[in-house]
């Protein structure tokens, strides 16, 4: 690994200042993506800014209509959170399916959301639940946050501090795991709110995306049968050695149905 400077700021403004001073430096939360990248010498930032000592970035809180998850909360903590399990069990279930137990003990929600890997789980939950990404500077709606392959709306110097999730009436997540990597070959998050249904897909294309025809159909009738005949266009889907685009398109429908089924039989994630 190439050498780098290392900062462990104690306050968010200090972290932001460090980042502004050295724009090529990298923020590190759990490091589950960044560290392998550094090990393979694919990146050589001059400095790492470790967020682990920043106060107030861990844990889950709620008010009437939302749950807020601190940026540095690990996947394991979300999966086990009694609050999340009680109010958005599908989100706890999603977190419990990321990587493996060791990865879940280090990986964080802000890392996953900021990295925006096209096959990561969290982007589907964040977009499907119409969450709000809270940074040190502003709030960004999920619909405006994810910008395609590893790209987000975050500006240089901006640090995610929390993600706020509206609590849905029902929600479900269904993931078809890539057998080797355990990332989502296709993952679909479905959430039913008073004012409609949202369907977000990860793994299938270069970034997480919504499926309006399915949202419309499910708003009419929240049942797997409502979307069974909906096929999504293969044009922007990924083809690789694990799955061709038409197979991914097919899986989107299958996983969407299963997510709806999971939502209907919703129970706290095990």
């Amino acid at each position: 690994m190439k050498a780098f400077a290392y900062h462990q700021p104690g306050q968010i403004p200090e972290a932001a200042k460090l980042l502004a001073a050295e724009p090529d430096s990298k923020l590190v939360a759990g490091g589950m993506t960044l560290i392998p990248t550094l090990k393979q010498r694919l990146a050589s930032p001059p400095a790492l800014i470790d967020l682990s000592k920043l106060p107030g970035l861990k844990g889950c809180t709620d008010n009437d209509a939302t749950i807020t998850i601190g940026a540095m909360t690990t996947h394991a903590e979300v999966a086990k959170s009694s609050l999340v399990r009680a109010r958005i069990p599908a989100l706890a279930a999603l977190a419990s399916q990321i990587g493996d137990p060791s990865v879940r003990n280090r990986g964080t929600i802000c890392g996953s959301v900021a990295n925006n890997d096209p096959a990561a789980d969290y982007p589907a939950g964040v977009l499907g639940l119409a969450a709000t990404i809270i940074t040190n500077e502003r709030e960004i709606a999920a619909d405006n946050f994810f910008r395609g392959l590893f790209e987000t709306a975050l500006k240089p110097g901006e640090i995610i501090t929390a993600v706020r999730f509206p609590v849905p009436l029902l929600a479900g997540y269904a993931k078809f795991k890539a057998p080797a990597s355990r990332y989502a070959l296709v993952g679909v998050f479905v959430a039913k709110f008073r004012d409609g249904v949202r369907v977000a897909v990860t793994g299938a294309g270069p970034g997480v995306f919504r499926v309006p025809p399915m949202e419309h159909a499910l708003s009419q009738g929240f049942d797997p049968a409502s979307i069974a005949a909906i096929r999504i266009d293969t044009d922007n889907l990924t083809s690789d050695i694990h799955a061709e685009a038409d197979y991914r398109a097919h899986l989107v429908t299958v996983m969407a149905k299963r997510a709806v089924q999971a939502a209907l039989s919703e129970r706290p994630a095990s």
Partner: peptide
């Protein structure tokens, strides 16, 4: 080699 890591070669 496209399946050049444990991410792509399924053990």
């Amino acid at each position: 080699l496209v399946s050049g890591s444990l991410m792509d070669y399924c053990m």
